[in-house]
């Protein structure tokens, strides 16, 4: 039996030779480990090398700038949750992450890990997408930046090369009158995987008219569904009940949800609509509060 190699580089520079080695050695990036360790124990993932990224400073920084928010890929959810300013600026992104698992899991789980695990039901991605998150991808040849929605390509698959790692997320700071929200449905109140998850980022003006919108749904398709039609429907309206009902109906028709132990196809369609309506309301209310 082969032993697994473990490396915990102290800097991005130190990570480079390891990433190069990862081109030929089956490897996994270890962030919080809350998915990876379970997959390894179940024999689903069998890496020969683990690269623990939690000691790389750039990956564990959370920087609240005037124009942008930089969130290291390996910042634990609990640290995000404890940051009051982040709650104020990107409440939906925080909601997505802090819904993942228990308090214990929160101490370990990271936004980068959640995204790169590429589960169709991942709670982190929808809100990061609607809040226009960009991913800085680091590799031996430097960095490249792609939108969050371009990371997951299929269940369990990402667009990152074997020699790349997700370094950080960059979010534009929300404008006045703009905010986000994330809601998911689970049968219990905690400790479940989303049956459906919906995020919305809404901008309103002083009259309460929606001037910009982004809606994304998780767990209804192999990857997150960005509902551009719903966004288009919302813009220009006052997000009245009829509009939200129409948005809900559109959401119920999206994706290709599966029937499994967590919910049926019909149920997922229904819940997508209900959550879409509710989450737009929450995001819009928050956006309204940010007008002052």
């Amino acid at each position: 039996m082969e032993s697994v190699q473990y490396h915990a580089p102290q800097s991005l520079e130190d990570a480079v030779p390891l990433l190069k080695e990862a081109r030929t050695t089956p490897s996994r990036i270890l962030a919080g480990g809350t998915d990876l360790l379970i997959q390894m124990r179940a024999g689903v993932k069998t890496p020969e090398m683990l690269i623990d990224i939690k000691k790389i400073p750039e990956l564990t920084q959370l920087e609240m700038g005037a124009d942008q928010i930089r969130l290291g890929a390996a910042v634990p959810s609990a640290v995000m949750d404890e940051n009051a300013e982040l709650h104020q600026q990107l409440p939906g992104v925080v909601e997505g992450m802090e819904l993942i698992g228990s308090t214990q899991v929160q101490g370990r789980a990271t936004p980068g890990g959640n995204l790169c695990n590429a589960s169709p039901a991942g709670d982190g991605a929808p809100a990061m997408i609607v809040s226009s998150g960009q991913c800085v991808i680091f590799g031996p040849n430097g960095t490249r930046t792609i939108p969050v929605e371009e990371v997951c390509t299929a269940p369990g698959r990402t667009s990152l090369a074997d020699d790349e790692l997700l370094q950080e997320f960059i979010f534009p700071a929300p404008k006045p009158g703009q905010s986000d929200a994330y809601l998911r449905f689970i049968p219990r109140n905690e400790m479940d995987i989303a049956v459906v998850g919906v995020a919305a980022n809404i901008t309103v003006d002083a009259s309460g008219t929606c001037t910009a919108a982004k809606v994304a749904l998780g767990a209804i398709a192999p990857t997150v569904v960005i509902a551009t039609d719903i966004a288009a429907l919302l813009v220009g309206t006052k997000l009245d009940d009829d509009t939200l009902a129409a948005a809900a109906e559109m959401a119920s028709g999206l994706g290709s949800p599966i029937s499994d132990k967590r919910g049926t196809t019909e149920f997922r369609h229904r819940i997508a609509g209900v959550l879409t309506r509710r989450v737009i309301k929450i995001a819009a209310a928050r956006a309204g509060e940010r007008l002052q």
């Binding site: 473990y6 915990a8 480990g33 809350t34 360790l37 623990d52 228990s102 214990q104 899991v105 101490g107």
Partner: peptide
Amino acid sequence: ATGDCGACSVSLDGRLVCSCLVLGVEAE
């Protein structure tokens, strides 16, 4: 051993974690 029951809870650098979801080598 999947982080779903909390019976293995420990504190790691002041942070509550499931010790089943931490590698022994990470405790360095």
